[in-house]
Nucleic acid binder design. Structure first.
Lengths: 189, 189
DNA sequence: ACCAGAAATCAACTGCATGTCTATTATCTG
DNA sequence: CAGATAATAGACATGCAGTTGATTTCTGGT
């Protein structure tokens, strides 16, 4: 029987390490966390850590990667529709973020994180395509700039919302972003 | 005589270390550069490094700090005028950036950098004030979000421009940013 | 319930960068 | 030139990183 599911012990160990790292990341930056500190806090043998990860950055990247995949799955779900509704996608994303707040606090606060830039680069081609449909008369040579401007702006928005303790609802945030996108895109015309 | 200017030897050593670090940062990330590697490349005794800096992050932060001060000086120059011209400030900043390209490549690529967020937080109060003057009817509770969106967007723009090898002129970039600010701000109304 | 395989633990070891210190040499400032 | 100060060379203790081998514990399949 091809049981591709990993051993329960492995799942447990990895889960504990991931959880412990996100907890530690609330207090200090990744660069200041040693493997020993992590495994002590997780009550896991230090050697066991190296059974699964190259170093502490490797572990962090795997956490990022997992979150990224969840994120992309949400987006993909909508991409299959004929006319993806922007606000609906954003709403789902905001819901996912608030449901996984602990991970996102860690990811958004960790300087070494690649999560945000990864999201940006992955969604770039599709988004450019969408924008192109909407504004076929635009200056194409500036598309990249508008895209970078907009996406980083969104990230900042989310981060800011997050750090304030998410006072606005997911719906409000999704609306706000849609509004900003429209006014930003209108510059392309 | 209270000569507060540091010894020539100190100035030389610090300059070499700063220069060498920015050079190394073009190849690899800060976290992967050891003191030994730096001092070897700089042909400086390792002990000498510790005479001036706590660790390699300390050195990097001092480089950031210096650049930040230059940056703020440019902005301050305009803030004293009655009606600061946005495009003119941006133009000067773009010129400063392109003149100090080597440092900015290092700063923009270094994940541990605080430079950008520092610039943002320092200019936040003034900018909010300016925007308030322009759009007194806006929804004040959303100002923070608009500000974060806009400033991070600008940063992304600059980074993108930079990474492409600065194909557009400083003038074009300053114009582009002004345009984006206007369409972004118009959402506040 | 049992067994074979795999994972976790423990202890030990090497290697490397860090940070500190001292004695010595080189350089600067007035 | 002379006193002060910075830079160097070399050595040292320390701590974490990674790896290894022997041992114990747990797990999934039969």
């Amino acid at each position: 029987m091809d049981n591709n599911k990993p051993d329960r012990r492995v799942r447990k160990t990895k889960a504990i390490l991931r959880k412990t790292l996100t907890k530690l990341l609330m207090e200090k930056d990744l660069k200041d966390i040693s493997v020993l500190e992590l495994t002590d806090a997780a009550d896991i043998n230090r050697g066991t850590f190296y059974l699964h990860y190259k170093d502490i950055y490797d572990l962090f990247e795997q956490i990022e990667q997992e979150t990224l995949e969840d994120f992309l799955n949400i987006i993909v779900r909508y991409k299959q529709l004929d006319s993806p509704v922007w606000t609906a996608v954003m709403l789902d994303l905001f819901k996912y973020i608030s449901a996984n707040a602990d991970i996102f606090i860690a990811v958004l606060n960790t300087k070494e994180s690649n999560f945000l830039t990864d999201v940006i680069e992955i969604s770039r081609p599709k988004t450019k395509q969408e924008w192109h449909k909407l504004f076929s008369t635009g200056k194409e040579e500036y598309y990249e700039y508008y895209y970078d401007f907009f996406t980083f702006g969104c990230i900042a928005l989310v981060r800011s919302w997050f750090m304030k303790g998410m006072p606005e609802s997911c719906e409000q945030m999704a609306e706000l972003i849609e509004k900003l996108m429209l006014s930003c895109i209108s510059g392309l015309k």
